[in-house]
Design a protein around this nucleic acid. Structure first.
Lengths: 169, 169
DNA sequence: ATAAAACCTCAACTAAACTTTAGGTCAATA
DNA sequence: TATTGACCTAAAGTTTAGTTGAGGTTTTAT
């Protein structure tokens, strides 16, 4: 009889084992592989076999994703490691420092937004001229797709919230 | 001659005018309309005509988006206003309170992540057993798609980062 | 009156991050 | 041995938030 499954930790893991241990779906592992985020060896029968270190790699990917970093960027960062060796503590240190910076930026922006929200709840104006919420000059780079406020000469009282006074004829 | 364009502020705005004033593309306005986020009247010639209040509505939509709320939710919230009247200060107050709460939650999560990142940079372990980054029990609801850590009995030293010691034979 | 600019609809395309399906192979077990 | 469960590939589908294009109509300006 072969070594039973629970006997020694075998050197390599199947895709299903990696899925169970890492918490990501098998299809996701396939997907990550096509994106170059992880890689695998193959068994004689063409099934994926992973070194245990893939679990760490996946953990790192998931952490990066939680910080809001797109997979493509994660891939770039990971593949920029000198060779494709296992992550060392020093790598992790460098990566996490970078990601922490990104995260801090996002936190800063969201906090600013929240504070503006807080202060604008009192006034409730949403005036184009006055309200910081309406003119987020510092947020243009946030996924900006369209043109932003190219011109707003001829600004007239269009955006202001009415003081609650329903149907005053 | 008709009233010139720049003479009096006409009662209604064309889609292009709304686009220019609000900073969103015309195609986006069409799109928002299909999603029920805004609506329009039509001219004799079937062109969209908007009341000025649409600008405020769009401003609110954009603010909500900045907080990270998906359009579908924004739509639900806006359409839950008693009738489809203009936003009043009291509406804005209520909405922004809700959104602020969401935002705070997001900020809290990101901040926790950052702090974990900070404290884990020192140790660099990423150990499945010890590292808070590896087991974010409080983050399961964050876009969770796959199964999460259903079982990890038989945990063996798979995830730990090696102390920097390149090729120690 | 006519041409250009703005507008219309509908359908298809984009991007990210996956999942699902279809059709077939491999491996562990009763 | 036979069957089931795990695995394979490739392609297509899903969601969110839009954008782009084709083909045609309205408005506006000259």
């Amino acid at each position: 009889m072969e070594k039973s499954k629970t006997d020694l930790p075998r050197r390599e893991l199947s895709v299903g084992e990696v899925a169970a241990r890492s918490g990501v779906a098998v299809s996701t592992l396939h997907f990550y592989e096509t994106k170059g985020l992880i890689k695998s060896m193959r068994s004689r029968g063409n099934q994926r076999r992973y070194p245990r270190s893939v679990l760490r790699r996946i953990a790192v990917i998931k952490i990066a994703q939680r910080t809001g970093i797109p997979l493509a960027d994660i891939q770039k960062t990971l593949s920029a490691l000198p060779d494709d060796r296992q992550l060392l503590a020093s790598d992790w240190e460098r990566l996490s420092e970078n990601w922490k910076a990104d995260l801090n930026e996002r936190i800063t922006k969201l906090t600013a937004l929240r504070d503006q929200l807080t202060s604008c709840i009192g006034c409730g104006c949403l005036s184009m001229r006055d309200c910081p919420l309406r003119n987020p000059h510092d947020t243009l780079s946030e996924k900006g797709t369209g043109a932003y406020l190219i011109e707003h000469a001829g600004e007239d009282g269009d955006g202001a919230v009415q003081t609650a006074r329903p149907d005053a004829s």
